[in-house]
Design a protein around this nucleic acid. Structure first.
Lengths: 207, 207
DNA sequence: CGTCGATCTTGACAACTGTCCAGAAAAGTC
DNA sequence: GACTTTTCTGGACAGTTGTCAAGATCGACG
């Protein structure tokens, strides 16, 4: 019996098994981004990979296990997307421009990821077993937003006038609306998003 | 053959049939608020009503038809919740206090409705047939937010510095975070929500 | 080459889903 | 009361789902 694959939950470095897990997650992610949480069946996910549907239960204990792994993996990477911009910017204008460009880019490029995220987050309201991972990712995104805002404030020589959870909720509200609107018209959604975030950012600093 | 019930889609006043529809929707709403869109089966919904599962297809053409009817009905009422406060308030303090109190109340009282709404809105990203109704409700909520904000600005003798879609997205971002957090700890979620909205509102006016 | 464990496939399982329909029940009409 | 129409029931249908397990396949090692 093979126990190793399922036991690697805590630290992620069993080597071969973890590579398979990632491979599976990659295929699952493709399906999940298109169909969403509820409509993605394990058979459909497996069909978009090079494996059969049974192998999922060899590397993941559960459907939820697979999906949370997916969300965690991709959204963790996602939460680092602005790091380069934050580090490189030396003026407010540079930071603003870089931030808005990156944000607009991920809106249209990683649409599937964002859809899946908002879907899973909504599901977590009904499915308690999702809440842990959702909370974890939410904190990552909050920190991401906060890194941008504090750097923005620093470069402007001012201070944020809202705390991290508030800043995140506000910006995320704009972003979610853009993801939803982007399902119909991505280009307009992107333009609106950047314009609205550009309007909002200055409001988050003390005068 | 009975054609009447299904044909009443456009104008809603066939009398008896519409009362049944509302009755069904009421039961459906109860189930939907607890289980969410995906996990609510028609049998489960019917079991929470006084009818059998077959009757749903007599008054609704579809599962989606029932759910969108539900969301539309309840969220339309919801979008009028602040009207009294807006009309009655004569000072900024009155409006703020009334608005925050009502908002906090609906957060904990109508939790099911808000959960269902965010769920359905997320599903609309994957299910195009939901988008029409979601867009419609979204506009209602945007107007609702805008009515509050313009009155707030008027009483303050200032002007809003963001447009209606931006204002709605920002406030809704705070509210959605509160609904999610409220799944774990409603009281704290409510306290945080009112505090954060109180911080945010003044930022939406020109200095 | 043969053995053994890890890995994967395939098919089966029981449960559940939305939808439809034949007929029971109820309501309305003369 | 006899009829027609509306309303409702309960079961059947075909499909899908997550899960599991028995066996095929593979690869490494002695």
């Amino acid at each position: 019996m093979a126990v190793t694959p399922l036991e690697g939950g805590e630290n992620a470095s069993s080597g071969k098994a973890d590579r398979r897990r990632l491979e599976l997650a990659e295929s699952a992610f493709k399906t999940l981004g298109e169909l969403g949480y509820a409509r993605s069946s394990l058979r459909e996910i497996a069909q978009n990979s090079e494996f059969s549907h049974g192998v999922v239960h060899y590397y993941f204990s559960d459907k939820i296990d697979l999906i949370t792994f997916c969300v965690r993996h991709y959204k963790t990477a996602c939460s680092r997307r602005y790091d380069a911009v934050v580090d490189a910017a030396t003026t407010v204008e540079e930071l603003t421009e870089g931030f808005l460009a990156t944000m607009g880019a991920t809106l249209v490029e990683d649409t599937g990821l964002h859809r899946l995220w908002y879907d899973v987050r909504a599901q977590s309201m009904f499915e308690p077993s999702l809440r842990g991972d959702v909370l974890h990712v939410d904190r990552l995104l909050e920190q991401m937003t906060w890194r941008v805002l504090t750097r923005y404030a620093e470069l402007a020589g001012r201070a944020p006038c809202v705390d991290a959870p508030t800043a995140y909720a506000l910006v995320d509200g704009l972003f979610e609306q853009a993801v939803i609107a982007g399902s119909v018209d991505p280009a307009t959604a992107r333009a609106n998003l950047t314009a609205r975030v550009a309007t909002t950012l200055p409001l988050l600093l003390t005068p």
